[in-house]
Amino acid sequence: MGVSRRAKTIILQIVMTILVIIWILPIVWVVSTSFKTTTEMFMDPLSLIPKEFTWDNYVRAWKLANFSRYLLNTVIYSVVSTTIVLFISSMSGYVLGRYEFPGKKIIFITILATILMPSRYTFIPIFDLIRKLGLLNTLGGLILVSSGVNALYVMLFSGYFSTVPKSFEEAAIIEGATFPQIFFKIMLPLSKPVIGTVIIFHFVACWNDFFFPLILTLGNPNARTLGVGLYAFYGEFTTDWTGLAAALVISMIPILIVFLMFQKYFMRVMAGGIKG
């Protein structure tokens, strides 16, 4: 029994290791290709270690193809949108989770109902609205659209705040703290776990979003995000494979770093998503 258990472990370990290497090969391959010369990429697309290591592809993607700008845009878009979403959802979650007031139920139900709305298919009024506001082809328009109320986040906050004992703010009320003071100084700092979850969820969602950035920023190279920039690059420089590889690596490095830093937390948060 003992021997067969060990044999099983070893076999399982070897099989899974081979599988996982194959699984992440597409990522490893593109990183390796981004350091190859065009000639080497054509001659030997299979090798994973470049013979002639070059930074040229990165220089081309960064300067010529505007990826420095796209990266900056994506950072601004993701950070600003996440910040706005954090405030909107924590403030509304706070009053929905802790207070009784006229109209509460209908607001709650309407927010919940948005989960079912297939927003991917009802984009024409959004496009029309952003255009009429004069925000088409600007980062501002994209940020506005992506910062819409998100039922999952509001529920997380309201659920969390409803469990905080009343005594927490009573002392503050006696000392004469105002409503916003109680929220920003006492309640919001208490909700760190939810804040972390929302930041991770929303930051990744923004970073990876392609649809709304495409319809709202494609027309202006200075407002494009990385995803749209990649799409445009592929259309314009179709044959610059190694340049594209470098652009792909530039687009995934920041999000990979975020993932590696919060890896365990990340997967736990994701697993929670199925209950939402």
Binding site: V20, W23, I24, I27, L230, Y234, L244, S251, I255
Partner: peptide
């Protein structure tokens, strides 16, 4: 195995 999930869809498609 989870790693591809966090990549942008545009990156995956063009890769």
């Amino acid at each position: 195995f989870f790693l591809p999930v966090i990549l942008p869809t545009a990156v995956v498609s063009l890769d």
